[in-house]
């Protein structure tokens, strides 16, 4: 039977390490407010906006720009880590697990848009920018939570069910 293409099982561990690293960067920069100026680097950009607040006012297409890379690193680590966790094979990856994946994905997309809809209807002003930022990660987070919850339930069911 044709099965969906997934990463090897050990990619899940790599994914979790990346997620923890991302959370570490977020903790250091947002909560502990540590000096992360060493992460301000000159990097190539496809497009860099030319607006007064940037440390490098010369924007444009295909330019080098000096930017604080903390948020970029957080996002890259979190998204790559999340995708690895999401699409790494289980120890035994069979059609039942595929059905759990399918159900978790539908759940993640539905809940994501329900939350977004509520945010559109109930949140106004600059706070909405936060919603857009959280929305980048929400499908990954909801999928991982739902998938693992469903797996845990089925494992628990298998434990208590008589042979």
């Amino acid at each position: 039977m044709k099965s969906i293409v997934l990463f090897p099982n050990y990619f899940k561990k790599i994914g979790w390490v990346l997620i923890v690293a991302a959370l570490g960067i977020w903790l250091c920069s947002e909560i502990l407010d540590l000096d992360l100026s060493f992460l301000t680097l000159k990097v190539p950009a496809i497009y860099s906006a030319d607006y007064p607040l940037t440390s490098d006012p010369k924007g444009g297409w295909f330019v080098y720009t000096t930017q604080d890379m903390a948020y970029t690193l957080f996002s890259v680590f979190f998204i790559v880590g999340g995708l690895l966790v999401m699409f790494a094979r289980e120890q035994v990856e069979d059609e039942f697990i595929h059905s759990v994946r399918h159900s978790a994905l539908i759940w993640a997309v539905s809940i994501n848009y329900l939350l977004l809809l509520l945010a559109f209807l109930g949140l106004y002003g600059p706070v909405f920018i936060d919603v857009v930022i959280y929305n980048v990660y929400s499908i990954l987070i909801i999928y991982i939570l739902r998938f693992n919850y469903l797996l845990r339930i089925s494992k628990k069911r298998a434990l208590v069910y008589e042979e």
Partner: peptide, 20 residues
């Protein structure tokens, strides 16, 4: 070639297996 939890889910009627 499946996990035990899949067999449990099928026996309990929680999951309908593919034709295969």
């Amino acid at each position: 070639g499946v996990s035990r939890q899949s067999i449990v889910a099928i026996e309990q009627g929680k999951y309908v297996p593919s034709t295969l």
